[in-house]
Structure formats: structure tokens, C-alpha cells
């Protein structure tokens, strides 16, 4: 399997702070790839550069054979990358179904087709019974899943998840993990996630990249990475799962 996303020598500086330094990695098509690291490690900056929120100062981001660094967020989405927001941003005044409709209409201009697609996705995300509820009335776990549903509706080849597990209870985390695993298995969707919840990372990821002070300190399969001395020292500490 080839790489669907190739990050090469990416740098980002905010005034004096080097948020991301010379980070390179590749995500294989169909993989679930996790980026972990302590707060301030540059995970979100990296995420935002891929999603088009801002351009890297140096380096390239190639998605499906095309350079996408510097493109606007909407252009990045149209190329086939869906994203969620760490702080969820539902369209509060719209119903759950219409939230997903907005995403579905991107590639399905026909409303009936878009609605069918939206319902299909709502069913996958365990939200079918809440489709008529206003998004503002949802609980946090439901909002997190709505966030994923909406991004998924745009028909991405790569899904970027920004801490979708944050704030979820263990049972909700397991539910999300099961949904994402199922999605990846049945549709071959590539997933790149930024995550602090190690329970989810260990269960989901095929590959883990560890960032610290903006630089890469380790990459590999989860079981190996969590035993890495540098990773334990900088991030996991004594709470590392065995």
C-alpha cells in the first residue's frame, strides 16, 4: 500500500516559538495513524497545517500525489480530507440530520441522494434516533460523534480527528473506538488522529508518531512506542500502560 499522505520536512514558527520542526512521516492508505505527545508538542499545529488552517513555513504536504500545503481549508476538504474540531462546532440551530446534510451535499448535489447518504452515516455513528433533534441539544458524546459524522459525509479518503475522545467516559471511548475501527475496516478509510487518551490510541492505531517540543521523537507500532524510553520520559511517565 502506498502513502496517501506524505509530510516532508514541515516547519512552523509562531514568532519566537518553533511549534513544529522538521517533521516528516507518511501515512499509508487504509491505515489508522495516531499522533501523540504532551501539550504544546505541536500536534494541533501539525493538524492545522494538513487541514489548511495555515501553511507551513517550510516543507511539503502531499496528499494523494498532490501538494496541498497552503490550500484553504475548504479546498483541502474538496481534495478528500475531512476534519473534526477539538472543541466541537456543531451547527447549533440545525437538526442533527441537517448538520450531516451540509457535509453530504458537497459531493451529492441532489438533495434526496444527500439525505439518504446522511442517514446512512448517522446510522453508522449511532445517531439515527437523534436525527430530528437540534444539534444544540446533544450531549457531549453525541456531539463528538456528530462531528465525525459531518466530516465523514463529505466523502473523505483521509479523516483527521482532533482529540475526539477528549471528555468521553471509558464506555463512550470504547464505543467511538468500535465505530472508527468498523469504518476503517469496512470502507478502507484512512484515519489520522491526534489523541491523548492512550486507551483509544492503543486500541485503534496501527502506527503512532510521538512529538515533543515540535519534533519527532519516536514512530512505530503502539506496543513498541509505549516502551520507548524517550517517550516514557517526555510524555507517558509512570502512567504508561503496560
Amino acid at each position: 500500500m502506498g502513502a496517501i499522505l506524505a509530510i516532508d520536512g514541515v516547519n512552523k514558527r509562531f514568532h519566537g516559538l518553533r511549534a513544529v520542526q522538521d517533521v516528516s512521516f507518511e501515512v499509508a492508505e487504509g491505515a489508522i495513524f495516531a499522533v501523540i505527545g504532551p501539550n504544546g508538542a505541536g500536534k494541533t499545529t501539525l493538524f492545522n497545517m494538513i487541514a489548511g488552517v495555515f501553511a507551513p513555513d517550510a516543507g511539503s504536504i502531499v496528499f494523494a500525489g498532490e501538494r496541498i500545503d497552503g490550500l484553504a481549508p475548504d479546498a483541502v476538504c474538496r481534495r478528500g480530507i475531512g476534519r473534526t474540531f477539538q472543541i466541537v462546532r456543531p451547527f447549533a440551530g440545525l437538526s442533527v440530520e441537517d448538520n450531516v446534510m451540509v457535509g453530504a451535499l458537497l459531493r451529492r448535489p441532489d438533495r434526496a441522494a444527500a439525505r439518504a447518504h446522511a442517514r446512512d452515516i448517522l446510522a453508522r455513528l449511532d445517531l439515527a434516533d437523534k436525527r430530528d433533534v437540534a444539534a444544540a441539544a446533544l450531549t457531549l458524546p453525541d456531539r463528538k460523534r456528530l462531528e465525525v459524522a459531518r466530516a465523514l459525509a463529505t466523502g473523505p479518503r483521509l479523516l483527521l480527528l482532533d482529540e475526539v475522545m477528549a471528555g468521553l467516559r471509558p464506555t463512550e471511548t470504547d464505543r467511538m473506538v468500535a465505530i472508527l475501527t468498523e469504518l476503517n475496516r469496512t470502507t478502507g478509510l484512512t484515519i489520522l488522529l491526534i489523541e491523548h487518551v492512550m486507551r483509544a490510541v492503543m486500541a485503534l492505531a496501527h502506527t503512532v508518531l510521538v512529538l515533543h517540543h515540535g519534533a519527532r521523537i519516536a514512530e512505530g507500532v503502539p506496543d513498541t512506542v509505549v516502551r520507548d524510553k524517550a517517550v516514557i520520559e517526555s510524555y507517558l511517565g509512570s502512567e504508561a500502560p503496560a
Binding site: 487541514a51 484553504a72 481549508p73 475548504d74 476538504c77 474538496r78 475531512g82 476534519r83 474540531f85 462546532r89 456543531p90 451547527f91 447549533a92 440551530g93 440545525l94 451540509v102 457535509g103 458537497l106 459531518r150 466530516a151 459525509a153 463529505t154
Partner: peptide, 12 residues
């Protein structure tokens, strides 16, 4: 209207 940044992230 509801959230312009979120709208952009959906390809709009």
C-alpha cells in the same frame, strides 16, 4: 450562518 469555520472545513 451557524459557524463559518466549520462550514469551510466541510468544503464550502
Amino acid at each position: 450562518r451557524e459557524d463559518e469555520e466549520a462550514a469551510r472545513s466541510l468544503g464550502i
